[in-house]
Nucleic acid binder design. Sequence first.
DNA 1: TTTTATATTGAAAACGATTTTCATTTCCGT
DNA 2: ACGGAAATGAAAATCGTTTTCAATATAAAA
Lengths: 138, 138
Amino acid sequence: MLEHFEKFLSGRGLRLTRQRQQVVQVFLSQKDHVSAEELYLKVKKESPEIGYTTVYRTLKLLFEADLAHVHNFRDGFSRFEPAHLVEHHDHLICRKCGGITEFANKHIEKMQENVAREHGFKITDHTLDIYGVCRDCQ
Amino acid sequence: MLEHFEKFLSGRGLRLTRQRQQVVQVFLSQKDHVSAEELYLKVKKESPEIGYTTVYRTLKLLFEADLAHVHNFRDGFSRFEPAHLVEHHDHLICRKCGGITEFANKHIEKMQENVAREHGFKITDHTLDIYGVCRDCQ
DNA sequence: TTTTATATTGAAAACGATTTTCATTTCCGT
DNA sequence: ACGGAAATGAAAATCGTTTTCAATATAAAA
């Protein structure tokens, strides 16, 4: 997955620098949906000299390289998720604890395709976020 | 629907002022998904003295009164939709022209409930946005 | 009706996440 | 080593949205 990124970068005439490597490494080792700031703080722990800007820039590159998915749950900032090996899925978001549970449902996907077909619409992607209260918070 | 708003306001010790009336009237006569700025410009046409701030504040009140739904398609700002008489629905968003098509599908809703039940999750609401290219843009 | 308290307004300033600028540093190919 | 492009990080800018604040309007009390 790091090779994928390196290939993507060199294809654009860009370099895999120490800082980018560091950010990518921390990002990929991450299972949760991290915000830019959360990632920045984690990176900073190991490499205090790396700046906010670089984290943002690297996240953008990861997104463009299809190595990161971006989500906007309703908390004001973008959350990033490693795309490596992760199958497509949707989210249950708890309004109390903020916890995010992933799920996948082929039926729902199929039906979305049906709806799109009925409208002559060609799907590129979609977002299905279900908000409510999770088991632990009830 | 205006009475609903008035009732909501007075229940909070708030007043239905001329400005609020004006904003609400323009908003409700609107079918599309308007951004705050778009609404501001339309309101301004009839009442040039009404300020940006008041539009924002009134939209917030409408939202709290359940008279407006808020959506975040991926264009950077919130879009508001009159909730009056509008049945719940989801969206097909065209990446080329930005056009938004609404649809409703009971099967998909049911399946979401099933998924939630499996996770012991209590749904309050959800967002299903399908992105792609609409018929006219292909 | 006058007083009083409270809500409302609009302009401007503040906010917060993200992006851009810019001077400096690093890296690669020659 | 050298020259040029890319990368960095701090600070400033951006942009949608919210807050502040002094002035105004309005409802209720006296």
